[in-house]
Design a protein around this nucleic acid. Structure first.
Lengths: 215, 215
DNA sequence: TATTGTATTATGGTATACAATCATATAATC
DNA sequence: GATTATATGATTGTATACCATAATACAATA
């Protein structure tokens, strides 16, 4: 079936734009979101803005205070820790499934992404590295058939995007990160689910520790 | 401090109402959600309805098809299985933490809830049993400090609410369920995190199996 | 200075208008 | 009769104007 993708609605574009602005730290935690201001800056009507706000509210990226509008959500140390804990569980499970299901095409793609990530980190292009890392894990999750989990992880990641960027660019991470990824791919290639899980866990635990220090 | 609670906004009420209608199977998966119909039946304006829709869309309770409105989300067997898998991970982790943190007040409350649940099941009041079960686990999660996890579990549960109701009222579950809960409480009381986790896992695995048959 | 009053701003919510699109029925054509 | 074209109605997508109320900041007053 030759599907044709429908034109994106204004609301979808606006949502993406607003979410990007938040996750890329253009609008900072605690900042107020004034409806009419957003209308102007995005060039859309209030209706659209309000729908976006509701969507992001449900994603916990922004929080509403009654009669006082919305602010970009802040995040506590405890929440960060919990988010990393949850990610560890979900990613370990995903990487296991992936190890059992991955074919050559997947492995190749993973290697390719890993290389690109390493390059980006060497060039200090953290934003791009973050995007590629997301791709990397998305492939792992979908290969493992963990679509619901990936959905959750994406949301959790959105809430700690700033920390992720900082973590990724931290000195130890720049070289060690890609090595970990390489080990994960190797384990997947050998269908060694246990080892893949173990490395994944280690990798994430390290990230969590760096994040904990940074916050 | 004499706080006065703010009146809930229309949107909040409408959201709850709509979500309830979906989770309680009043509106069934696949059913269309027509904006104006919802406006009338809920007595609110289109703006409010649309905000609710966006919120529920983000919760994956409804899905939108461009230019054709929204339908109540359906769920596949695979998704159900994955949701139960995720719940097992999250609840096991939560029950462990709970076992370490629970004081007498919590234990008492858990016992109380468990009794109420058993009573409801004997009287075939499944809806109420479901609500109480939610309370039961909410207490476990919050006691364990797993607020983010609880948030996720609540959402996942919303997506399988119908299955949960069916599962809960299945013959084997009516008597076995409360026994499992009792065992969990016991383990928590003795601060035996390992056993608590184990029982919790068993309990949920059974539920998942029943659900798998039902779907 | 502390309190009160007031103006401004922003939100919460409604109603309405209109274009774009989809579904369906109907008419026209081969 | 089967297919295509057209018209129609329903519904969404988007914009805008409007009102009431709450929050806030600031001025006025005692």
């Amino acid at each position: 079936m030759l599907k044709v993708d429908r034109p994106k609605t204004l609301k979808e574009n606006a949502l993406e734009s607003l979410r990007d602005a938040i996750t890329s730290d253009l609008i900072k935690p605690g900042d107020r979101l004034v409806e009419r201001t957003l209308c102007e800056s995005m060039g859309v009507s209030r209706t659209v803005v309000r729908e976006c706000i509701r969507h992001l509210e449900s994603e916990r990226l922004i929080v509403g205070v009654p009669n006082a509008g919305f602010i970009v959500a802040t995040i506590s140390r405890d929440e960060v820790k919990e988010i990393y804990d949850i990610r560890i569980m979900l990613e370990c499970s995903a990487v296991r499934s992936c190890a059992l299901n991955a074919d050559k095409a997947v492995i190749d793609k993973l290697h390719q992404l890993r290389e690109q990530i390493a390059t980006c980190l060497q060039n200090d292009d953290v934003m791009q590295a973050l995007k590629l890392t997301t791709e990397f894990y998305k492939l792992i999750f979908t290969t493992g058939g963990k679509h619901v989990s990936w959905d959750l992880v994406e949301r959790l990641n959105a809430r700690i995007s700033r920390l992720r960027a900082l973590t990724l660019s931290s000195t130890g991470r720049k070289t060690k990160g890609p090595v970990n990824l390489l080990n994960i791919i190797d384990a997947i290639e050998q269908k060694d689910a246990d080892r893949a899980e173990e490395i994944c866990k280690k990798h994430l635990t390290e990230a969590a520790e760096i994040a904990a220090k940074l916050i």
